[in-house]
Structure formats: C-alpha cells, structure tokens
C-alpha cells in the first residue's frame, strides 16, 4: 500500500528549482497510481482544482482535468482570455487571489515568463498550491515529469542515456524543463538537432554548465540515430521563423522519415509532447519505437501524483 510522503515544495513552478528527491517521489507515486488507478479514486473527494489558462491548450488542460476527476475531485476554470475579466485587463495577481478563494489548487498557463512564480508568491499567502502548466518559453514542468516518467518506465533508469532532441529547441519550454530534469539524474548525453536560429536559449547553457549533461550540437540525424536511446521530437512553429521561405527549406530536415529508423537501435523510443503536425508521419505510429501516445497517457498519472501530493491531505 502507498505511503503518502510530502514534497519539500508546496508549488510546482519549474524543474530547475526542484530537488531530485521530490522528482523521484512524484515519479514513484505516479507509477503506483498507474498500476492501481482505481485505488485513488476518492483521494481528492470534495476538492476543487482551478484551471487558469491564459493561453489556449487542449492536452495539458484536459490531462489535468482527467487527473483531477480520476482522483474524485472537480475542476473549474477558463481557457482563453476571450469573454473573461482578463479581457478587461484584470491582472494575474488579482485573478490568482480570486481563484485562491474558489479552489484548493490552481494550474496556471500564461504566455509570460515568471508568471508561475508570481502566481505562487500570491497564492502562498492563502495557502493554495500553484502548478505551472507552462510559463511562456521558460518551463513546462509537468510535461518534463511525464517525459522522464515515460523514459524511466522503458529503460528503468534516467542516466547513461543517449538522447536526441530535434526541432525548435529555442522557444520550447518543454525542452528547457526536460534538460533541467535530465541534468539531475547523473550522466546523460544530449545530441541537439536544430536549425542555428532555433538552438538552445543562451541562459540554458549557463544553467546547465556544471551539471552532468553532455550537450552536443549534432549535424545530421541520419548519421547519429543509431546511437540514440531516446529521440525527442518537437514541432517547428512556422511563426518562429524570421523568414517563411527558410521555414519551408528547413522543415524537411527535421522531419522524421521511416527509412531513418532502419539504422536505429531496436530499443529506441520516440517521444513528442504533441500536438504534432508533420514532424512524424503516421506510419511510424505503428512501430515499436513510437511511444508518444503512451507518453501523453502517462501525463494523467504524473499529474494525479502531483495533485495528490499538493492538494491531498
């Protein structure tokens, strides 16, 4: 039976500031929940989770909603600015104060960096936990937790792995959080496949020096795929490119083709935070490498674990 331990933090703002122990607790509890989901169906009876989404989101919002419902709780919230008091210019601070009075925990997604931290500072005064569902290009901590949960589920370890990251590495909060997470679990070798204008944020290099991560700017996926244990694909966003011609030119290079997988290790797993556009062709879905839908499903268990830690008693 589950021993329900406390985390050392009362909010989930970003992975960078989380301890390895807290991350491990969340993963372990998520695993127990995945094995016996129905044992937890009354954990958050009578509790209300507020979903405050200043940016549209389908996956993250529905995944949190599903997690809360599976724990016996309920949700309230909004999922864009249209038709709310936010459109009238209400501040984040005021919105959080209001939601702290309506709920037992708040998930926030906001287009600006630092938003989750500010929300946590405000909600702290009311004893209400904040969970970031993405703060601008900064971090998306629960995504990273479900990513490493999925990696750990397959490999039974989070170190000594060769991991390739492909696509938009610059504006992807998912990538930032994932690198912070991997940097806490021993040696991992990270190959970066990206267009020069979409390489890692400079700050990330600063934060990741003196960690065990080995970062390599890789040239060509075809040459390196045979070494990889994990290939993490992100979506190229057309609007991020200074020139649409460049986007069309570059797009093909970062598309995964079935033939490429011929030289991959049999145990290679392909992950994607979803939604995908055309980075991964449908035919790859049927291969044993494709794990992105399982990854998305794991998001529910990981979020259940987090919600129970922060809201449950």
């Amino acid at each position: 039976m589950v021993s329900h331990r406390k985390l050392s933090t009362s909010h989930i703002i970003g992975i960078r500031e989380m301890s390895e122990e807290d991350i491990q607790k969340i993963l372990d509890y998520a695993k127990e929940m995945k094995n016996n989901p129905f044992e937890y169906s009354e954990r958050l009876n009578g509790k209300i989770l507020a979903l405050a989404f200043w940016e549209p989101s389908t996956r993250t919002r529905l995944s949190f909603e599903s997690a809360m419902l599976r724990l016996g709780g309920r949700t309230i919230g909004f999922s864009s600015q249209a038709g709310t008091s936010l459109e009238k210019g209400e501040s984040l601070t005021d919105t959080i104060i209001m939601l702290a009075g309506y709920s037992d925990g708040i998930v926030i997604r906001h287009p600006l960096r630092g938003s989750a931290k500010l929300a946590a500072n405000v909600a702290e005064r009311y004893g209400i936990p904040i969970i970031s569902g993405g703060s601008g290009s900064q971090e998306h901590p629960t995504q990273a937790l479900l990513d490493i949960f999925t990696i750990n589920e397959r490999f039974n370890r989070l170190s000594g792995l060769n991991i390739g990251l492909i696509g938009d590495l610059r504006y992807s909060r998912t990538i930032s959080s994932l690198l912070f997470a991997l940097s806490k679990f021993g040696r991992n070798r990270i190959s970066l496949f990206s267009h020069p204008s979409l390489g890692l944020q400079e700050e990330l290099h600063y934060y990741l020096t003196n960690t065990n991560l080995e970062l390599i700017q890789a040239k060509n996926l075809a040459e390196s795929i045979s070494e990889l244990d994990v290939l993490y694909v992100t979506r190229l966003q057309k609007e991020r490119f200074p020139d649409p011609m460049l986007y069309n030119e570059v797009k093909g290079i970062y598309q995964l083709r079935t033939a490429l997988l011929n030289s991959a290790k049999p145990e290679l797993i392909i992950l994607h935070p979803l939604p995908r556009v055309d980075e991964i062709p449908y035919e790859i879905d049927k291969s044993n490498h494709a794990l992105y839908f399982e990854q998305a499903k794991n998001g529910v268990y990981v979020r259940m674990s987090i919600l129970d830690f922060l809201i449950g008693s």
């Binding site: 501040s91 984040l92 287009p111 630092g114």
Partner: peptide
C-alpha cells in the same frame, strides 16, 4: 516577456 514588466 517577463511578468514583472506587467501591471502586477
């Protein structure tokens, strides 16, 4: 893109 530059 920092939240501290908003009216908060």
């Amino acid at each position: 893109t920092c939240i501290t530059n908003q009216r908060e």
